[in-house]
Each structure stands twice: as C-alpha cells, then as structure tokens.
Design a protein around this nucleic acid. Structure first.
Length: 590
DNA sequence: AAAAAAC
C-alpha cells in the first residue's frame, strides 16, 4: 500500500530538488544582482522609530495586500504581474490533481483511535472543536490543497486549534510529536491572509527594499524551518499567499532575492531573522500572525534573548494587536510562565496522542557501560539487518550527546561496514542537508545525530531511534523518540543507560510507566535512589503533554496577575471530557 | 557541560 508515501515523501523529494536547483540557479546570478549588503538603508534598531499604529501609513500605495503586489522594490505592481511566472506545483502532479484526491488515501493515521483522545482546554470562551475540514470556512483554494495532501479529516490538535485560531485567539498548544501541529497553525494563517487579500491594505514605505511579512513562523533549527516552509508551500499553492524561508548557513543573497519577490509568510530561524532585521530588509510592522514551533525550545535559556529581541525589540505589533500561537509536544511550567509575556488572553490546549510518542513507540532501556556502547549498537544493527523491509534496511536514527561523538561514531560505523552519515552543528549546511536527504532516501539508512535532529523533523520510515547517549532532560528524550512512530505508525526506541544517566532515571521510569512500557527493575531501583521530583520531573505529568500552568496554584504566589481573571473558573474544560487526572499532579516548581 | 542559532 502506498499510503505511507503520499505527500510526506513528496516533501522530501521536492525539498531535495529545490535545494539543488535553487543553489545552482543562484550561483549564476550572484554578483550581478544586489549582492552588496544594504548598508545605505541600514538603521540600527535603537534609532528606528516605532511607528504607532495610529499613524497614517505612508501614502504611495494602496493595493491589495496580496503577495502579488509585493515584488520588486515596492512599486505598486498589478496583481497580474506574476502571471507569467508560473507557481511551481509543490505536489508534482500537474497532470491530474484531482486524481490523487479520488484515491481517498489518508496519511496512514489511524483515525479510529482519535475518538477517545484526552483533551484539556482552559481560558475564556473556548471555541468548540470541529469534526471535519468542511465545517470550517478556510477558503476554496486551501480546501483544495488539503484534499491534495490527502487529509481527509482533521487530527485532534487540528480539530481544536484551528477553530481557536480562526476565532482570532492566542493559543498555547501541547500536542504529541507527529500529530499534525504544522498544519494546525498554517491553515488559519493562510486562510486569514487570503481573506486579507480582498481588503485594501496599505503598507508603509520605509527602505525601498524592506519587506513586510504578514505572518512569522519561527523554529529552532534550519532543517525544521525548511520542512515547515515545504509544508506551508503545499498548503498555500494557488492561494496567492507567498511563503519564504530564511535561515543561516545558506547564501544570504538567494534568500534576499526570494524576499524581494514578495512574502506573506516568513518562516525563519532566529539568527538569520535578527540579521535581516538589523539590515532593515525585513520589518515586522505588518505581522498579524506569530507562530513559534517547538515553542518551549524557542524560549529556553539559549534562545530566549533572541526571541525577545525579535518579538519585543523590533516593530512587531504588541500582544493583542497580533495573534500569537505557541506549539510544542512539551511545555515545562516555567517556560509557560515565560511564554505568557508574548500572549494575550490565550487559550491553553493539550491534546493527547495518536500517531505519536507514547503507546505506538515501544521503548526499551538497556544497561550498557560506556565502553560497551559501540559493540552493543553493532549487535542491534546486525539483528536489524535481518528484518529489512522490501530489501531495504529500516531507517535507524542514533542520537549522541556531542558533535565530536557524532563524527567519531559515524566514522566507526562506516569502517565497520554500516552505511551511515551524520548531522550536527559543526557540519556545513550543505553537508547537513545532504545527510538528511541521504538518510531519507535510504541511501545511508543510519543517521548519527546530535539534538539538532531531535525536534520536529518528519522523516518517514524511521523504524528505530537509538539513544546511544541519553539526554539530560526528559523532554528532549520525548522529542527524540518522537522521530519514530509518526502518524499512527509503530516505532521502536532503544536507550543505552548507565551510571552517568542516574539523574534521568526517575523521570524516564515515570514516563515509561505512563506510556505503558515495561520498566526494568534495575531502572526502578535507580529511580528511587535518584532525584526526588527535582527539575527532571516531567513537565506535564499525567498521560500527555501538559497542563495549563495558570491552573496551578503554586504559580499564584507572588504573582497574582497570572492567576487572576481569565482562568479563575468555568472557563476551562469546555471541550474536555477528560477528568481522570490532575489532582495528584506535581508541579515542576514544587 | 552540550547543543542550537548570523556573518
């Protein structure tokens, strides 16, 4: 059955084609176009005036705010100007797009298992969930793309999150790895921008080459931004909504050229975006939608300053004047608290799983001394060779702690006859993308990776995730094993545990128990010995992703504002029907 | 202590 391939594979293929074609085309024109940095238009952030929203926008222009009018350097361009330039069909099915629809495939998700998914919502006036895409007014062009993607029915997170977003509400959403979060925030954004196209919107005229995206989607790694871009491009095909991606390690000029051709939705990693903002090539003044994917990662210690810079120290509209959506599979309470700075009267949504992490992934933990790890891995891989699928070895993703460790393990595997490659932050962007392509295609069915590959990447056919080195944080473990068992498929996750991982024992044992996994007796003994509920306790507790920190009374001390108003009573549980947990939950702050 | 993210 070809269901598994459908569009996820197309994404991989088209990503591969785009990168190669794109880079060679670009090389040809670099130097002839605007290669020089825009020094003349650069204004340091602290000298830029924040334009109050009441200011009349600069005159000059009053056309529809569609992507079509934003090419070039800001001169009004009729919406016909891009007609000659045909939009590349991201589905690769130019001949008969409706044929794909008639196959009635879905993405392989077991939809029956959705019926009793636990859901928690909290916040004021939570819009009710929908059961079908048809009952939501997303617009015909978007609906057609949804059909082309063979999405027959919304996933649980989509059922709840899309109506909330369409109602204009801010949202903090927890949903399992592989459960369709990208579409959940892309659909409302695309639909909203399509509706704006009809209105006559005016755009300010600053630097002639400044572009004004209407939506900004941030993610923590370059490859994840690429993936989101590919998906968003499918969803917005022939809608007139233009999606552009910007990330580091790749030629800036090519990305600038894309931006100048018009951008409605900008997908970016933080570093490159800050660069573009400092060069005044991008203004966030017109942003109506802000989405943070892997939001807890985006707000952790390493990223928070950059995110604050982007969101708070540029010209982005304030919370309430924009719509903000935060998505992740994990949401530690202390990060939730931080995140509330970026939100206005938001709804918290936690959706239990299907198509992901816990029950569909068989988790094994083996006690392996540091010095035995390689030979132990070899044993696993040998055993796996036997059960290759269709003559192809199943894909195995091996996580290690350090970049050096990744290089050396990859080399060792290679020497020992296992075709493998690696991805980590010390490799060039070309090498990283090549490694991912080669892994996806099965050419090198073993990928050794650092945490750069832990989050968000959708790689079909990953049968086995090996935690060669366990992470220090249980949430990272959740994301790593979530690279398998996606969209209703089963998966296997094996962890090598030894004395060095004692601090993880407790949370690992808890997580495994919550997901009905067999917990080895020796691990339980480690668990009792180690940290009593410390920082490593699972953020949400319970069977799935999380719980609104506003409902936790421990957060009210010393900060009454968090506990007041919005969530005092009655507002939550509107669509829940899952009351079986909550009382005995330990706060991550306890 | 490590990883990620701009040039």
């Amino acid at each position: 059955m070809s269901t598994r391939t459908s569009w996820a594979d197309l994404a991989a293929n088209s990503a591969a084609e785009n990168t190669t074609a794109g880079s060679s085309a670009n090389n040809a024109s670099v130097g002839t176009t605007s290669a020089a940095p825009a020094r003349s238009t650069y204004v340091p952030p602290h000298l830029r005036n924040r334009v109050p929203s009441s200011d009349p926008p600069a005159p000059a222009y009053s056309g529809p705010a569609s992507s079509n009018d934003r090419q070039g350097y800001g001169g009004p361009a009729s919406s016909n100007d891009r007609q000659g330039e045909r939009e590349v069909n991201p589905f690769g099915d130019d001949d008969d797009t409706e044929q794909a629809f008639s196959e009635q495939e879905n993405t392989g998700i077991n939809f029956d298992a959705y019926e009793d998914i636990p859901v928690e919502t909290s916040g004021e006036n939570v819009p009710p969930p929908v059961n079908t895409f048809a009952e939501i007014d997303l617009g015909e062009a978007l609906n057609q793309n949804i059909r082309r993607c063979k999405y027959v029915k919304p996933t649980p997170v989509q059922r709840h999150a899309i109506p909330i977003s369409l109602a204009g509400r801010d949202l903090m959403a927890c949903a399992q790895t592989g459960s369709g979060k990208t579409a959940a925030f892309c659909f409302p954004i695309i639909s909203g921008i399509m509706k704006m196209q009809g209105q006559s919107a005016q755009r300010p005229l600053r630097g002639a080459r400044t572009v004004y995206p209407l939506a900004l989607i941030l993610s923590p790694t370059r490859e994840l931004s690429m993936q989101i871009h590919e998906e968003a491009r499918k969803f917005s095909y022939q809608t007139g909504v233009k999606v552009v991606v910007a990330y580091g390690g790749a030629p800036l000029n090519q990305q600038l050229r894309e931006l100048e051709r018009g951008v409605d939705i900008l997908v970016a990693t933080p570093g490159r975006l800050v660069d573009l903002l400092e060069r005044a090539r991008v203004s966030l003044q017109m942003v109506k939608y802000l989405a943070l994917d892997e939001a807890d990662r985006m707000l952790d210690m390493g990223f928070e300053p950059q995110i604050r810079k982007i969101v708070e120290q540029n010209d982005m509209p304030l919370p309430g004047a924009r719509q903000t959506m935060l998505f992740s599979a994990t949401f530690p309470k202390e990060i939730q608290r931080l995140a509330s700075d970026f939100l206005f009267n938001y709804i918290f949504l936690a959706v239990g799983r299907v198509g992901s992490s816990t029950d569909l992934i068989v988790q094994r933990v083996e006690f392996v001394h540091e010095s035995d790890k390689r030979s132990h891995l070899m044993d696993l891989l040998h055993a796996q060779r036997a059960n290759g699928v269709q003559g192809k070895q199943a894909l195995t993703l091996v996580f290690v702690e350090t970049k050096k460790g990744a290089d050396s393990l990859e080399h060792w595997l290679y020497v020992n006859g296992f075709p493998s490659t690696s991805i980590h932050g010390d490799r060039t962007q070309q090498e990283r993308e090549q490694a991912l392509r080669s892994f996806r295609s099965g050419n090198t069915p073993i990928l050794v990776a650092t945490d750069v590959a832990a989050r968000g990447l959708d790689i079909p056919h990953v049968a086995h995730v090996v935690n060669f080195d366990l992470p220090n944080d249980i949430d990272d473990y959740v994301h790593r094993i979530g690279r398998t068992g996606r969209a209703g498929k089963t998966g296997l996750a094996t962890a090598f545990f030894n004395e060095g991982n004692a601090s993880l024992a407790r949370s690992l044992a808890d997580l495994m128990q919550e997901s009905n996994q067999e917990v080895p007796a020796w691990l339980s003994r480690y668990a009792v010995r180690s940290s009593y509920g410390g920082r490593n306790r699972r953020s949400g507790g319970g069977r799935f992703g999380g719980r609104d920190f506003r409902r936790d009374s421990s957060f009210s001390r010393g900060s009454s504002d968090y506990y007041s108003g919005a969530n005092s009573s009655g507002g939550y549980g509107a669509s829940g029907g899952y009351g079986g947990y909550g009382s005995g939950m330990t706060s991550a702050w306890d």
